[in-house]
Simulated assay, not measured.
Amino acid sequence: MSEPLFHMIAGGPRPVAPFSHAVEADGWVMLTGQMPTDPAAPDAPLPEGIAAQTRRVMENLEVVLKGVGLGLEHVVQCRCYLTEFERDYDEFNEVYKGFFPEDRRPARTTVGVTALAVGALVEVDCMARRPDA
């Protein structure tokens, strides 16, 4: 097993805790859960509603993936966290599915949680695989 690489992406979302944007080992890239913060304005209020927050979270995952030379097409698994599971699950799914082709959706787990950092409604982390690994 190779030594892990710890990635902090220039222009990526400002971390809300002490972590790396992504950690890579042997072709696997694990991305830290992304919040619906704006990388260009990290102190701005969060977008309103689950749809807007989900879009921002997915866009932030794209920023981190791009920073390590990958894209959403390389994602093999996602974990999704919702603070208002029953209320937001269907709307979350409507936005989320638009980021992946129907025949290439990653494995996924979605759980309801009592709270998330920065008062977010949603957080998503993921694992990607380099195609040449």
Rank of each mutant, 00 (worst) to 15 (best):
M30R: 07
L70Y: 07
K66C: 01
P13Q: 07
G11D: 05
D103W: 11
E94I: 01
F85A: 04
R130S: 08
P106V: 10
C80H: 10
Y89M: 14
P131I: 07
P15G: 08
L121V: 08
F19K: 12
E3Q: 12
V122E: 04
A117T: 09
V76A: 07
G33M: 10
H7M: 01
P131M: 08
P42M: 11
P15Y: 08
F85V: 00
A52K: 03
L72Y: 02
G27D: 02
P47N: 02
A107C: 09
M58G: 12
R56F: 04
E3H: 08
Y81Q: 12
G49F: 04
G69I: 11
C78G: 03
M8N: 14
V23D: 06
P47K: 04
P45F: 00
S20M: 01
Y96H: 04
P45M: 00
E91Q: 12
V68G: 09
L70A: 07
T114D: 15
G49W: 06
G71T: 15
R55I: 05
L82H: 03
A115R: 14
T83I: 01
D88R: 10
H21P: 04
R105K: 15
P47M: 06
G98V: 12
A10S: 12
M127H: 11
C80L: 04
V122P: 00
L72T: 06
F6E: 06
D88C: 11
G49I: 08
S20T: 02
Q77I: 12
A128T: 01
P106L: 10
C126E: 03
A25I: 06
V57L: 06
L70F: 05
L116C: 07
D26C: 12
A52W: 01
A17N: 00
A40G: 06
R104K: 15
T109I: 15
E73M: 05
R55G: 05
E48L: 11
M1D: 11
E3R: 12
A40W: 09
R56A: 13
D132S: 14
Q34L: 01
E62Y: 00
D90N: 09
C126R: 02
G33K: 11
F99T: 03
M1S: 15
G27V: 03
V57Y: 02
T114W: 13
P106T: 11
K97S: 14
D38W: 01
G67A: 10
C78W: 08
R130T: 07
